[in-house]
Structure formats: structure tokens, C-alpha cells
Design a protein around this nucleic acid. Structure first.
Length: 564
RNA sequence: CGAGGUGUAGCGCAGUUGGUAGCGUACGUGCUUUGGGAGCAUGGGGUCGCAGGUUCGAAUCCUGUCACCUCGACCA
């Protein structure tokens, strides 16, 4: 491709609304164009990268035996109504109706149509297992789109679905996808971690996320260097301490004026946060629930929500808190609640003795409170967030925390969708069973951003060769010099003949302009034809490590095979 | 959902007490330049987010509305 014909424009100035390196660089390099908040167009240069990433995914999915098809993005409501997700997705789903008033949505994820397709096509155990996939646009009306294509409302996702006769079959299909995912992200050059994850709105029995470690990541991940345990914060657990065996002291009401936060109480009572148990009221799908964790802990809303299979969950309103506790906000506790509500207590609290809680009376707390004697929780479960330094649930060594961008997520779904949509097969005895499903997603758009996050410098993007829009750029420094142009053209044609996607920057621009653009675009190999063109010598520069060398024609051609 | 901010040329921005819009960059043309975003000259490009209102006159003041961005979403 001749740069003089290329539909692109690089920008010197950073658009005002970009925050993170990948977003800034994608805009500056002209890879994408924003059409609306969280909605982007891919320009030719960006689309090349997109297709490269897509190609790697497709190759590995095909190699793993998955079959590609494509579902509509625009889907009728029925399937989602049958699975219950028409309601469950809530406002995240883009909804519309046709001229006759029939409800439709833009697919946020496609378990339902895939399940229906398999249901209507296969009826026998002999047909299974089967794994299908598509690479498709997905639509989610995100509360707050952010970070360019990392959290957008329209995005490209590879989603695959496996159908097996039983759990053992699912385990096999899942492992095949797991291995394929590792190959995909390895080939793309990403530094990633696989973590245990919450299966969230998808439901199911187990899942893992592929996380690219990055400070801009939206997920917190927890890991153990000693044994390799790694989990999303939503899911991570830790080893709990020993039970306190102190003697239970009599409960006592203490006046704590104006002390309603843990910090204020710690200062007021001259003690430490772990002597408290805080009680927080949540509104979970309209039902008020009290959640209790130790004072130095945070509640993990995912874990709490899972107990109630929550769709919508929020802190209870001030009015609800005041009515139920009979006190101003800040003095909630499990003892003396004015209304009977469910109390969920973190399992760690069960180990404590003689702790402090709000007294359900403004300006008062109870001290020496004990579980069983003073109150009885309805549920005792792990509902806390793990922190750095907590002990690994597997090996007991200290855990660390990091941030990550979720580029892939694999789930064991089980029969959730096959049950609700009637996706069954007949076994050897002619008996009906629900198929056992798995689903497997890769965010194509955000994978592109994740690559840039890992490979960039102050001059621009540094594409790994496999993702690069073009592998080589030939830059003649003088377009009016026949010797220079002759050699440049000859090299350009030789690269193309050898099968490398190549650019020749034949614009009548100063060399500096061309170098800046080549750096910003991140082309892995830059071949400058200039000063020593008459001798047949060119300069090679590798974008990834900045190495520079001189080479003759053959060496320059051979260099394209070495870029990574 | 709550709060704040911003909408003026492709991009980044200025525009004072209201008087009909400007700078940088990018773009066109000419000359000079040609190994890290050149110099000089010259030119084109804007219904000032949208709709009302006040006024002789509104980018500017008022009201409404839309879009975009950021932070927050209560740890009692």
C-alpha cells in the first residue's frame, strides 16, 4: 500500500476525552473514530489490526474443532423471555420494537439463540459434543462507557458455546477451549493471568477469566505467588484466622455521640477497626437485608448478591435505614432492629468475641456483643473482600492484589439455558436429558486495546508483528531522487512478493514527518532508504526494541522474517 | 442514578463591560527546504450543540433541552 493513497490521518494533538494510553494512541493513530459515547468506527488501519486479532482467534477456534456461524445482532424478545434474561439484563440491554410493537433487543450475549439452534437441530447423544462460535457485535447499554474500546456499548466479541451429554463431557470441552485461549493470548503476545471468577449473570458452576495485568484494569485480581492461586476479587477468598476463645462479657450500651464511621469510632473509643463489626443495609431486589463484616473489611457485593440471586442491588435508602434501625444512619446493628429483616453475617465474624456494633439508637453502640447470645444471623457466609496480605486459601501464604483487563472469560454453564429453553437430547435408552453447556468469550475490541496498553512508548504503538496492520514500512527520504526511489520501490515490491504486508511512504514529506507517523502507527520494521541508497545500503529500525542496523538488499528482505 | 464540568473550524484552544468570531495545528496554492512532526507568503474552511426568550443588536445575559467528559454511588 502506498501511504499517499492510504485513508488515514494521524493527529498531533491528543483528543480531549481520552484518558489512557491505548485510547489516546488509537485516536491519534487514526485507528478508530468515535461516533457516540462508547460507539466506535474502525478506520482502515484499525480494521487491519482488528482482522489480525480476529484471524488468530478464528484459527485457534477452528483448530480446537469449534464451528463458526453467525447469529443476528437484532433478536426477538422471546428467547430472552424464556430464559428469564429479558428481565435480568435490566437497563443494560438495548431494546426496541418493530412497527407492529413487537419487542426486540440488540444481543448483549447469545446463549439463547445458540441454545435454540442446537435444540432444533440435534436430538441425539450421537450428535454431541458440538461447539459453535461466532465473532459478532454485541450491545450493552453500559452505565458509563469508558476507556475507548475497553468498555464500550457496541463491541466485538468472539463467543463460543459447547453442548455435551454430561458434566464429564463439559469438562473436556471446557479444557479444549481453555487451551485454545492460552494459545490465542500467547500468540498475541499478551502478558496475562488466568483467574477464578464469579460466573455472575451467566450462572453456572465455574468460570475463569483471562486477565491482562494493567494499572488501568477495571477488575481487581488477587493472586498467590507461592502456589499460583489467582482469582478475581469478586470471587477471591482467604484463610480466616483462629476463633477467639475469650470469655463472653456482658453486653453493654455505650454512648458514642457523633461517631458513626469506623474511623470516628476507633478514635473515640481508642481501639482498632477489627474490634468492630459493621452492619450495612442493602436493598436487594426490593428486600432489605443487613450485611455484617468486621470493621476493617469491605463487603463484597458480588458474594452478597449471589446469596439472593440478585438482579438489582443497592445500599438501602436513608429512609429505609432510619425506619428499620430506629436510628440515624451510622448506628445500625443486629441487636434491636425495629423490623424483622434477614441478617447475613460474614463467616469471619463467627470467630469473634465481644465486639462492638451499632445499637440501633442514635449516638449509641453496644460493646461485648456475641453471636448466638445477643443475636442469631440468618445466613453465615463469606461476604467480604480479600485484601493484600490476607492468607491464601490454598497454601496459607500472603496474597497480593493487582489490576487487570478482562480479555477472555470461560464458563461452565451446566443446564441453566438448556433447561429453560428445552435443549434436550435422547440417550441410548431413549431417555431425555438437558444438554450440558459451556460458554466462552473473548473481547476482540478490548484485546486490541490491551495489546496497545502493553506495547507502547512516548512515540506511539509498538505492534507485535502478528497484530500489526502492516509488517514493514519502506521510507524513501527523498521522493525526487531517482536512486532513492528506485531502491525503495524495488524493496517494496520484494517485500510484497515475499508475502509481507508493506507500506511505502511515497509522500513528498520531510523524513521527520514520515518517521513520526511510522512510530505512531507502530509498524514493526522500518526500512529507510536515503543517504547510502547509491551503495544499495538501507537502514533497518525495529519498532519493538528500537534497534538500528544497516543492511543491503538481501539482508533487508530477510529482516522482515525475523520480526516478532 | 447523583454531583460537577464542557460544547466555538478536522484536532487543541481563546473570545474582556453584549456590537455579527479569532489563535495554534491540520488543509489548498507558490517558492525555498528534505534523516525526527520545516520556513516564508497566500488562501479556503464556522447556521459559536439545539430551541425559545431579553435586547436596536447575543458566542456572550435568561430559560429549557440535547450531547459529551469527569468524579461519586453512601462500607453506617
Amino acid at each position: 500500500m502506498r501511504v499517499s493513497n492510504l485513508f488515514f490521518a494521524t493527529q498531533r494533538e491528543v483528543p480531549a476525552d481520552a484518558e489512557i494510553p491505548s485510547h489516546k494512541l488509537m485516536l491519534r493513530a487514526g485507528l478508530i473514530r468515535k461516533m457516540s459515547s462508547g460507539i466506535y468506527a474502525y478506520m482502515p488501519m484499525g480494521f487491519k489490526v482488528y482482522k489480525n486479532v480476529e484471524r488468530v482467534i478464528r484459527e485457534e477456534m477452528d483448530r480446537a474443532g469449534a464451528q463458526e456461524l453467525i447469529m443476528p445482532a437484532l433478536l426477538p424478545a422471546e428467547a430472552y423471555q424464556a430464559s428469564g434474561r429479558w428481565e435480568k439484563f435490566g437497563p443494560e440491554m438495548f431494546r426496541m420494537s418493530d412497527r407492529g410493537g413487537r419487542p426486540f433487543c440488540l444481543g448483549p450475549t447469545h446463549e439463547e439463540p445458540f441454545t435454540e439452534a442446537v435444540r432444533d437441530t440435534f436430538r441425539s447423544y450421537k450428535n454431541l459434543p458440538v461447539t459453535l462460535y461466532q465473532i459478532q457485535h454485541k450491545y450493552r447499554d453500559e452505565k458509563r462507557p469508558r476507556f475507548g474500546v475497553i468498555r464500550s456499548r457496541e463491541f466485538v466479541m468472539k463467543d463460543a458455546y459447547s453442548f455435551d451429554v454430561d458434566e464429564a463431557g463439559l469438562d473436556k470441552s471446557y479444557k479444549i477451549m481453555y487451551d485454545a485461549y492460552r494459545r490465542i493470548f500467547d500468540r498475541l503476545g499478551l502478558d496475562y493471568t488466568v483467574v477464578d471468577a464469579d460466573s455472575g449473570a451467566m450462572g453456572g458452576s465455574g468460570s475463569q477469566e483471562f486477565m491482562v495485568k494493567s494499572p488501568i484494569g477495571e477488575d481487581a485480581i488477587c493472586f498467590c505467588d507461592a502456589c499460583g492461586y489467582a482469582a478475581n476479587e469478586e470471587k477471591a477468598s482467604c484463610k480466616e484466622g483462629e476463633a477467639d476463645t475469650s470469655v463472653e462479657l456482658p453486653i453493654e450500651k455505650i454512648k458514642t455521640p457523633d461517631a458513626k464511621t469506623i474511623e470516628e469510632l476507633v478514635a473515640f473509643l481508642n481501639t482498632t477497626p477489627d474490634k468492630f463489626v459493621k452492619t450495612i443495609l442493602y436493598n436487594i431486589d426490593g428486600k432489605i437485608v443487613a450485611a455484617m463484616v468486621r470493621g476493617d473489611r469491605d463487603i463484597n457485593e458480588t458474594k452478597l448478591g449471589n446469596i439472593y440471586d440478585a438482579t438489582e442491588m443497592d445500599l438501602a435508602s436513608f429512609e429505609d435505614v432510619e425506619r428499620i434501625t430506629g436510628a440515624k444512619v451510622g448506628f445500625a446493628g443486629p441487636v434491636g432492629l425495629k423490623e424483622k429483616i434477614e441478617v447475613v453475617m460474614d463467616s469471619e465474624v463467627a470467630l469473634l468475641k465481644n465486639f462492638i456494633v451499632g445499637a440501633c439508637e442514635t449516638d449509641y453502640h453496644f460493646k461485648n456483643v456475641n453471636v448466638g447470645r445477643d443475636f442469631t444471623p440468618d445466613v453465615v457466609k463469606d461476604i467480604k473482600n480479600v485484601k493484600s496480605g490476607d492468607l491464601c486459601p490454598k497454601c496459607g501464604k500472603p496474597l497480593g492484589m493487582a489490576r487487570g483487563v478482562e480479555v477472555g472469560h470461560i464458563f461452565k454453564l451446566g443446564t441453566k439455558y438448556s433447561d429453560s429453553l428445552g435443549c434436550v437430547y435422547l440417550d441410548k435408552e431413549g431417555k431425555e436429558h438437558s444438554m450440558v453447556m459451556g460458554c466462552y468469550g473473548i473481547g476482540v475490541s478490548r484485546t486490541i486495546a490491551a495489546i496497545i496498553e502493553q506495547y507502547n512508548d512516548e512515540d506511539g504503538i509498538k505492534w507485535p508483528a502478528i497484530a500489526a496492520p502492516y509488517k514493514v514500512i519502506v521510507i524513501p527520504t527523498k521522493t525526487n531522487d531517482e536512486e532513492v526511489m528506485g531502491l525503495a520501490e524495488k524493496l517494496y515490491n520484494a517485500y510484497i512478493d515475499a508475502g509481507y504486508e508493506t507500506l511505502i511512504d511515497d509522500r513528498n514529506e520531510r523524513p521527520g514527518v514520515k518517521f513520526k507517523d511510522a512510530d505512531l502507527l507502530g509498524i514493526p520494521l522500518r526500512v529507510t532508504v536515503g543517504r547510502r541508497a547509491a551503495e544499495g545500503i538501507v537502514e533497518l529500525k525495529y519498532r519493538m526494541d528500537g534497534a538500528v542496523e544497516e543492511a543491503d538488499f538481501d539482508a533487508a528482505l530477510a529482516a522482515a522474517g525475523k520480526i516478532k
